[in-house]
């Protein structure tokens, strides 16, 4: 039950973040979406033992977070919540791949641990960039961007509708779950049977709601086509944004700056 509330507040919080007005928020959503995609593809195109070359990629989310004035800790916690699946799959690497790939004095690291770390870094980067995208763009704008970039309108509209009614239905579901838990004792009443009735009722109510929404749409001239009057404006700023970041990502893909810098330092010390 508290989970429902948390999820609801969470959606609401992300939504609030995306409603701010900063430089990061003002950039056309298409530019941000495209840049994030290029970012993710570049990050995951690295070999599985790569660590140092991935580090410069933290610059992109860091810049967006500060430009968008987003809460770092909050986003980081959101990543931690979903990391278990990646850990579950990745943890087998150290168990299976025991070949020593790196020695640092008395410590030796097996390839498995390196690739595990690499997975974790990639996960943080990719998941983080998606959260940053949504927090400084907003879901509706991402949907509009998708539609303008060629996604079928039916799908874009479906996303918008879904997002609109998540707020209503989560509220409804949490009221039902509350009503159930207030009247169930010693775990009785929380079994599958009651659950089936509960969801069944919610589903029927949802279908009735769909009917009323359809009626409301018909009353305002709906004819099967949803029209949205929204002009997205992409100017030179967006072009520069996309190209500059993409160039940076690709450069970082081919030149391992940390390694070069590190070499310079270690060589000058030695």
């Amino acid at each position: 039950m508290s989970r429902i509330k948390t999820a609801f507040l969470d959606l609401g919080h992300m939504d609030t973040l995306s409603g701010r007005d900063t430089f990061a928020h003002r950039i056309d959503p298409r530019a941000k979406l495209l840049t994030t995609l290029i970012f993710i593809i570049t990050v995951i195109s690295f070999g599985k033992y790569e660590i140092s070359a991935l580090i410069p990629f933290f610059i992109f989310p860091a810049v967006m977070i500060s430009l968008g004035e987003l809460p770092v800790y909050y986003l980081f916690r959101k990543i931690l919540i979903v990391i278990p699946f990646a850990v579950m799959i990745g943890i087998f690497n150290p168990l299976i791949d025991r070949e020593i790939l790196m020695r640092l004095g008395p410590f030796s690291l097996s390839g498995g641990w390196i690739s595990f770390c690499s997975i974790m870094i990639k996960f943080t980067l990719t998941a983080g960039s998606v959260l940053v995208l949504i927090a400084c763009t907003g879901f509706n704008s991402v949907c509009m961007a998708l539609e303008k970039m060629g996604a079928p309108r039916v799908f874009a509209v479906q996303l918008l509708f879904l997002y609109r009614y998540i707020f209503v239905l989560i509220d409804e579901a949490s009221r039902m779950a509350n009503a159930r838990s207030l009247r169930s004792f010693d775990g009785k009443g929380k079994g599958i049977k009651v659950f089936g009735y509960l969801l069944g009722h919610l589903l029927l109510r949802t279908i009735d709601r769909a009917q009323r929404i359809h009626l409301a749409m018909l009353c305002r001239g709906f004819d099967g086509e949803i029209r949205v009057n929204r002009r997205l404006e992409a100017g030179i700023r967006e072009v520069i944004f996309t190209i500059a970041w993409s160039a940076f990502f690709i450069a970082m893909r081919f030149y391992n700056i940390p390694l070069i810098a590190g070499k310079l330092i270690t060589e000058s010390i030695l």
Partner: peptide
């Protein structure tokens, strides 16, 4: 889109929201 019955459009939207909301309720 080709489906003549345009009731499906709002129904899909709320059904998706339902799946989402339903995942938040659990059972033992």
């Amino acid at each position: 889109r080709d489906d003549v019955d345009d009731r499906i459009i709002p129904l899909m939207g709320v059904a998706g929201a339902f799946i989402f909301a339903a995942q938040m309720i659990n059972f033992t």
